[in-house]
Design a protein around this nucleic acid. Structure first.
Lengths: 204, 204
DNA sequence: TGACTAATTAGATATATGTTGAATTTGATA
DNA sequence: TATCAAATTCAACATATATCTAATTAGTCA
């Protein structure tokens, strides 16, 4: 049955330790001992979780001597669009060391300007929602920065806000959440701190 | 913490009853009693699951007199790209009654021809993977129909097959799975029956 | 072969969760 | 107000699962 596979997939991702495992693996392959140490659990626990992640085709293994190295299954890495993959993949995009090459910064700014020019009308309305993730994020960030930090918004307010730019408020509202620009609780929306935003600059 | 939300989301979808609930709701809103009956559980169980689905923003509620009607949160409906949303949303796309307006059929054929023409070279190679879901599905279907029904493929075979059309075999292989054209078990790939395929014709 | 290391398995425990029937609450209506 | 229907809460149970320690297996290398 088909249903069961879906459930198994979500079960695999329904545990904090396993997600943290995937996040660690997104920076490169690691063996069981190391994973155990980094996650403060025993090797037995790693084996347990590895079994489930493997069953869901989320990780792969490679053996070298006595040691088994785990890594993300490319099957999984490729995803962007699921919030989960976002969280895990985002970190790999940019090395945690800061400092950006000035040439790179220039390029980014150029891209940003060009996206804004192409996707917004002269009146400032959004012509269409970019399909390409990087461009979409530029647009989302552009919109979201017009919201007030720390203020709580009703769903209706958000809808109205979005509609001044684009008719499809449901999609955009959802994208705000998915890419961590906002969060919602009991239908109240609020801006996330920018550290949590999915930033387009970090995508390769 | 951010991690916890992700986990909660996956937990919400990590139960067969809840997924079946969402599938039922994809055909329209239903109240608790009806859901209970359709799923062969008690109303208490529905309340329990509804609480979790609501917490994950997957359903909405509307009250009419004494009765509460549940429906999918548009937040969720919009998704396409996650296999889960695929499974749930697919059913809503085309009314189960068959028969398609011949004008519509013509339009579809035109779109298909145009996509094939635009995305394939004259040598039959794939120029690029369409970003738009509908077009992507046309391309995927075009590729996948060249595979043999009922035959089991090694991962390497699939890679080789795909590479005759496009270099990025990892992405395409993944798309085959995501959109239900194939399934895999222990790294053996096999075609799904066409009834399971995500068909582009059913997208509006 | 024997010593060593990484991984896995097995058994145990605590916690989480899906389900139910019974009791309670909520809202509508006669 | 009394009554009815739908939903929710509560208490109980069974099952699943995350984690650990200890024992075992697998594989390497001197």
């Amino acid at each position: 049955m088909q249903l069961e596979k879906l459930v198994a997939y979500h079960k695999a991702l329904a545990d904090p330790t396993r997600i943290r495992m995937l996040i660690l693996l997104s920076e490169g392959e690691l063996n069981g001992q190391t994973l155990a140490q980094r996650l403060s659990v025993t090797p037995a626990t790693i084996t347990h979780h590895a079994t489930k992640l493997r069953a869901a085709s989320l990780i792969q293994e490679r053996r070298d001597k006595n040691t088994i190295y785990f890594s993300l299954d490319d099957y999984f890495i490729r995803t962007s669009g699921s919030a989960t993959a976002d969280l895990i993949y985002r970190r790999t995009a940019e090395g945690s060391a800061g400092e950006v090459d000035p040439t790179i910064r220039e390029k980014r700014e150029k891209l940003r300007v060009s996206v804004l020019k192409n996707f917004f009308t002269t009146e400032g309305r959004l012509k269409s929602i970019p399909a390409q993730l990087k461009k979409k994020l530029i647009v989302l960030e552009e919109l979201v920065q017009r919201l007030e930090r720390g203020r709580k918004y009703e769903e209706k307010e958000i809808n109205t806000f979005i509609q001044t730019f684009h008719e499809d408020f449901a999609t955009l509202r959802r994208e705000f959440i998915m890419h961590q620009y906002m969060f919602r609780e009991n239908n109240i929306y609020e801006l996330n701190p920018p550290e949590l935003w999915q930033r387009w600059e970090t995508l390769k």
